[in-house]
Computed example of a mutant assay.
Amino acid sequence: MGSFTPITTLEGDAQFDAYVAQPEGEAMAAIIVIQEIFGVNEGIRRKCDSWAKAGYLAYAPDLFWREKPHVELDADVPDDFQLAIGHMQKFNQDRGIRDIEATIKAARAALGGKGKVGVVGYCLGGRLVFMSACRTDGDAFVVYYGVGIDGLLGEQHAIGKPAMLHIPTRDGFVPAEVQQKMHEGLKDNRHVTLHDYEGLDHGFAAEMGNRRVEDAAQHADQRTADFFAEHLA
């Protein structure tokens, strides 16, 4: 349904690709889908395609482009997982946020400058969405099993638009004590909603592969769809 389209950096000195899926009719809003450490792979593209079928203009920026464009790895392949860790370690997250902001800008321009833009991300992408909620002018933000968010809580006062976090309680990358810090640190922020998923592990809402837990993924995704329908209208 979609194809890769160049996005100009905020500095205007380079371009990177984003997978873009177009709805059949006029887009009601745009949604930026932020990758896991596995790149803009088939699962991320499918998520964009699903948003397009729901009537949104969907973008998935290739955030690893400065190190290696078009990384596409499989979470279920051990060698791919190790490669993905290597890409993540080389990735500059602050630059990544600027690329997300450039994608938001491009999406708004494609909407004629009038539409709203939501941002949703997974794993590393979930962390980047939380950072984006603090640092960009997106209109609504959804975090799936974001990593290291306890270290970002000092920025949460800057969140001025609705944000929602999906937190699996058995997340192997986000220990229980980190989850507690997230709940404690965000409980008084009127813009933020947290949902716990008891007994589930990291990656439960992956679009495809062994990590996916079907009923829980559908439940979380429906919450996300309802959230965007409310805040991007």
Rank of each mutant, 00 (worst) to 15 (best):
I100C: 08
G96Y: 01
M164V: 05
G203C: 03
Y59I: 04
A107C: 14
R108S: 09
A205N: 11
G199R: 10
H70G: 10
Q179I: 10
E24P: 02
M1C: 14
F4P: 07
L232S: 04
E24K: 12
Y144Q: 02
A107S: 10
I44M: 01
R212Y: 13
M1A: 13
F204L: 06
A225E: 04
E155R: 03
A27I: 02
E230F: 11
A217L: 04
H166C: 07
D94Q: 13
R190N: 15
I159S: 01
H166W: 08
G25K: 13
P78K: 07
A205M: 06
G209H: 10
D215C: 06
A217Y: 01
Q82S: 11
M88R: 13
K68T: 12
D62S: 04
E24D: 14
E177D: 15
A233K: 13
Y59M: 03
K68W: 08
V147A: 08
N41F: 03
T193V: 09
F227H: 01
D49K: 03
I34Q: 00
V147Y: 00
L10A: 13
H231N: 09
A18Y: 05
D62A: 15
V174S: 03
I44H: 00
G118L: 07
T136W: 06
R45F: 06
L10I: 13
K187G: 06
E24G: 03
G138A: 08
P162R: 07
Y56L: 06
D74K: 07
V143W: 01
L200Y: 03
I44V: 13
M131K: 14
P162A: 12
G55S: 09
A52V: 06
V142R: 03
Y19I: 05
L83Y: 07
Q156N: 10
G154Q: 13
E101D: 15
D139W: 07
K114G: 12
V40R: 00
T193A: 13
Q218E: 15
E67Y: 12
I104S: 01
A27Y: 00
A106K: 04
H70M: 14
C134S: 04
F227E: 05
E198W: 10
D13A: 10
Q218M: 15
K105A: 15
V71K: 00
N189F: 08
A205T: 14
A205Q: 06
D215T: 14
R46Q: 15
W65F: 12
G121P: 01
N92G: 11
I85H: 07
R45V: 02
N41M: 05
V117W: 00
L232W: 01
Q35K: 06
G172R: 11
G203Q: 03
F228N: 00
L200P: 01
Q179M: 07
M28L: 15
V40A: 01
T9R: 01
F227N: 04
L200K: 04
H157D: 14
D226E: 12
E42I: 12
M182G: 06
L124C: 10
A206F: 11
I104R: 02
G86A: 15
D215G: 05
G43Y: 08
F228H: 02
E67D: 15
E42C: 07
I31A: 02
Y56K: 04
L128Q: 10
E72V: 12
M164W: 03
I44R: 00
Q93T: 14
A58H: 00
P175G: 08
D150S: 11
G112R: 02
G55R: 06
K187V: 11
G2D: 06
A102V: 05
